[in-house]
Amino acid sequence: MAALVATPRRAGSPRGIRDGEAVTGWIFTLPVLLILGVFMLVPVLMALWVSFSDWSGRGSPLSSDVGFVGLDNYAAVTTDGGLAERDFGVALRNNAWYVLLVVPLQTALSLFLAVLVNRAVLRGRGVFRTAFYFPSVTSSVAITVLWLFLFSTSGVVNAVLARLGITGPNWFNDPSGVLHNLLGALGVQSGPDALTQHGLLGVTWWDWLAGPSVAMSAFVIMAVFTTSGTFMLLFIAGLQNLGPDVDEAAMMDGANGWQRFWRITLPQLRPTLFTVLTLGLIGTWQVFDQIYTGTQGGPGKTTLTPAYLSYQSAFLSQEWGRGAAIAFILFVIIVLMTILQRWILRERR
């Protein structure tokens, strides 16, 4: 805006008191630009190159004996029909279910918690806020280890379930899909041929519909538990930015608390909701550390995720191009999901 105001007074004159500003600005931003360039942009570009190359992990990927192989690495995980494709299909299946469950659950829970601790009448709000936020500050590795203990066959969770007369599952060792188990309880043991004979990425439709495995479900609960605190903070900030006037006006019009939340508060929280959903989508599609410390993809590959598969292909199988290709496909998925979600949450007039 400063430029617009200044223009009429100094029309035609290129020199002035603000001349040095641009250069100064560049100098001030230079450190950040350099750091971002060296540690983010260049590695990302190099990884992109690796995903199109036959680099084998020895020496620089930019040396002359590394060849360009076009889309071969992408084809290996999407169209080749081999083990690599099936692994990628399984990883996508697992992660899709994870996202589908975690994102809505954590958003709803964090909004609920935020509304609770935002109420002026609540005593000891600080204590509750700290308590709810605490899991978010703890390292995910520590929480994973805790979870492995809690959900072991003879662990606390199963002990509590046993008190209630329920025989708990063998959590982190149970590869069976939750939906398949539900159908099994209803007497459906195998799917119709239409689903079992056809599929996508080497995984049959019936297996796509297996639902998260029991082991993955434990991770879903863990993700909701750990991230709700962080998002609760975002919602609290959003709630405190809302003026009381609209709410009071609605109250005068005779709207009850429930109506005011859905019709007044929630629509005003749209920007915060967008942030929470976007961060949630990105975080859940990239789930890695829980898998790396917890299950390494097991049992029965049902906790394998694209991020972990990418690591496994590159570092353990020396298929660096394939690992990078998986990472970029994941990137495209995240971008598409974010755009889709932005479109759904757009302002309707």
Binding site: L41, V42, L45
Partner: peptide, 14 residues
């Protein structure tokens, strides 16, 4: 910047 850096990488580690 990226090109300069990658160029260094190419010749330096080859």
């Amino acid at each position: 910047g990226a090109l300069t850096l990658t160029a260094c990488g190419g010749s330096g580690f080859e």
